[in-house]
Nucleic acid binder design. Structure first.
Lengths: 231, 231
DNA sequence: GGCAGAGGTTTTATCGAAATTATTCCCTCG
DNA sequence: CGAGGGAATAATTTCGATAAAACCTCTGCC
């Protein structure tokens, strides 16, 4: 009976982290739009928590960059303008490009095998739950994440990998904010295949170039979509 | 009279941020050693604040990576082992290397001038307050920070720059933790000069290589010092 | 007609106490 | 003599209330 409530609480030992996780998901999924005022009292009521855990959750989100805090004036959902998207994408290209180059240089046999496996699983997963219209498949999303993590995992720079993960999340937020669901005229699966092949062939220049294209194309789609929707 | 107290509070509108700043300085300077247990009640007493702002400050530090939180078990100062130092330095080399390459590629006349100016100011500042023995000069530290920021500023990737700043802080913490004050057999000023020259000459390969050497040498000194002190 | 200022309202930030959870220490049992 | 269980202790986490700050509105004045 209490299972329904413990659903979120089972993995989150404390209310503050549970609220943090939910709030984070609501921001990343776009349910809370950029710039939205986050009134402590309203949030506490709708999330069923007191002011203290709520405030702590917001504080953490602000430190992560997903929210903005103005002292004595409360919290807002972080802004997400097309202009910031450019900086985000360039950061991704530079950070992941450097990590990938290093991973290709330093990767051992275990790295190759993990990458091969991640690519295989990504190819097996269905991109959409519905063959007719696009419905995001959580399984594919998970494999996609793992694939990109596997690419970089051998770079030997944990802080850089954590940063890449954060940028990935932020990029996912932009994707959710735009109306972009599918990418017409693109074969994303093929892009992953040739990217993995270049990495396994230790062709760093080629792999980094492909990775950059991969992100810049996606960014162009999303930027165009957001630009049309706002400006 | 109240000036003495408002010293910290003048710039920090809220107690939580004031405590956050002080705690952060205490960790970065090494006054709070790695792994140190941070008991809420004790901290609240010594920093003169209640539990709520204290907790919020710790929460932010944990999100920044300067503290570690275990739910229901409180906070600790983030660990700082020599092994982690390697990952940190590699992250710096990769992230700043990529940013520097991009800045050299994209930098305009304004970037060149800002870099030239930052280098000039760094050279004018005294490294030590005392000519006989090393006493850290805050002015030099500030110029040093500005110089490295100026190098990368034209990369057009604000999130990446913010990440580099964070890594720089973390590195500074390791320097404070080790007994390393000066670097025997090194002319740090000369390293900065040739680095700036390579960047202004748009020699990306040379500049990135010099930057990597700059960080790896420092890391070797600190790592050796920490290794001898701990293990 | 527009602007400055005062008072009331809303919202944030902080405190102090209660509830929940981990840790410790001791006592009993094998 | 060591191990396991169980209260006492200490710590973290959360709630409710209070104080302080910002916002809004309404009035009076130029």
């Amino acid at each position: 009976m209490s299972q329904a409530f413990s659903f979120a609480d089972a993995r989150d030992p404390t209310l503050a982290t549970a609220v943090h996780r939910r709030l984070r998901e609501d921001i990343l999924s776009g349910r809370l739009p950029p710039g939205q005022k986050l009134k402590l009292r309203d949030l506490a009521e709708s999330y069923g928590a007191g002011a203290s855990p709520m405030r702590e959750a917001l504080s953490r989100l602000a430190a992560e960059g997903l929210a903005e805090q103005i002292e004595h004036r409360g919290f807002r959902v972080a802004a997400a303008a097309p202009g910031q998207l450019h900086g985000l994408i360039r950061s991704r290209v530079l950070a992941e490009g450097a990590a990938l180059r290093e991973a290709i240089l330093r990767g051992d046999a275990a790295w190759e095998e993990a990458l091969l496996l991640a690519e295989h699983r990504l190819n097996r997963a269905a991109r959409s739950l519905d063959p007719n219209r696009f419905v995001s498949n959580p399984d594919w999303e998970a494999c996609h994440l793992r694939f990109h993590q596997a690419l970089l995992s051998a770079c030997g720079a944990p802080p850089l990998l954590a940063f890449c993960d954060r940028l990935r999340e932020e990029a996912q937020r932009y994707r959710a904010l735009s109306n972009t669901l599918a990418y017409p005229g693109r074969d994303v699966a093929a892009e992953h295949v040739i990217l993995a092949r270049a990495a396994l062939n230790r062709d760093a220049d080629e792999a980094v170039a492909l990775l950059a294209q991969h992100y810049e194309r996606t960014g162009a789609f999303i930027g165009a979509d957001m630009g049309s929707g706002i400006g």
